[in-house]
Amino acid sequence: MPWIQLKINHQAEYAEQIGDMLSANGAQAVTFVDAKDTPMYEPKPGEVLLWPDTQVVGLYDAEYDMQRVINQLEKSKILGKGFNHKLDQLEDKDWEREWMENFHPMQFGERLWICPSWRDVPDPKAVNVMLDPGLAFGTGTHPTTSLCLKWLDGL
Rank of each mutant, 00 (worst) to 15 (best):
A27D: 00
N84C: 04
Q5D: 07
D132V: 07
V69E: 00
L50K: 13
T54P: 01
Q5P: 01
D88M: 10
D123M: 02
G19V: 06
Q11D: 02
L152F: 15
D37L: 10
N71D: 05
D53L: 14
D61W: 09
S117T: 13
D61E: 08
V48N: 09
D20R: 14
D92P: 01
E74R: 02
C148V: 14
H85D: 00
W151G: 02
K77T: 10
N25H: 15
A24P: 01
Q55Y: 09
P124T: 03
A24L: 13
T141G: 12
E13P: 06
E16A: 10
P45C: 14
V30T: 07
E101W: 09
D37P: 01
V69C: 03
P2C: 05
R119I: 02
G140F: 12
M1C: 08
V30R: 07
N102P: 00
W3N: 01
E101P: 01
H85C: 06
L87F: 09
Q107Y: 05
G46D: 02
Q28C: 05
C115M: 01
N128S: 08
I4S: 02
G82Y: 11
E98P: 03
K125W: 03
N84I: 09
V129N: 01
V127F: 12
D34R: 13
L87K: 02
D153P: 06
W151Q: 05
P122V: 09
T144Y: 14
L135A: 14
G140W: 12
Q11T: 12
D153N: 14
Q28I: 08
E101T: 11
C148N: 08
W51R: 08
C115F: 05
Q67C: 05
K86A: 05
G82Q: 11
N25R: 04
L135D: 02
L112S: 11
L152H: 04
T144W: 13
H104L: 10
P52N: 06
T38N: 05
V30I: 03
I70H: 02
G140H: 13
I8T: 09
K77G: 09
S23I: 09
A29C: 05
C115K: 03
V56W: 07
G26Q: 00
N71T: 05
S117Y: 11
E42F: 15
G140N: 05
W118F: 13
V56M: 05
N128M: 07
A136E: 11
M130V: 14
T31K: 12
R111K: 14
T31R: 13
N128C: 04
I8C: 02
M100L: 11
G26H: 00
E74W: 11
T144Q: 07
A24V: 01
L155A: 00
L90K: 06
R119C: 08
V129Y: 06
I18D: 00
D61T: 11
E47N: 06
D53A: 13
T144R: 12
D88R: 03
I18A: 06
D92Q: 08
F83Y: 10
L90D: 00
E101H: 14
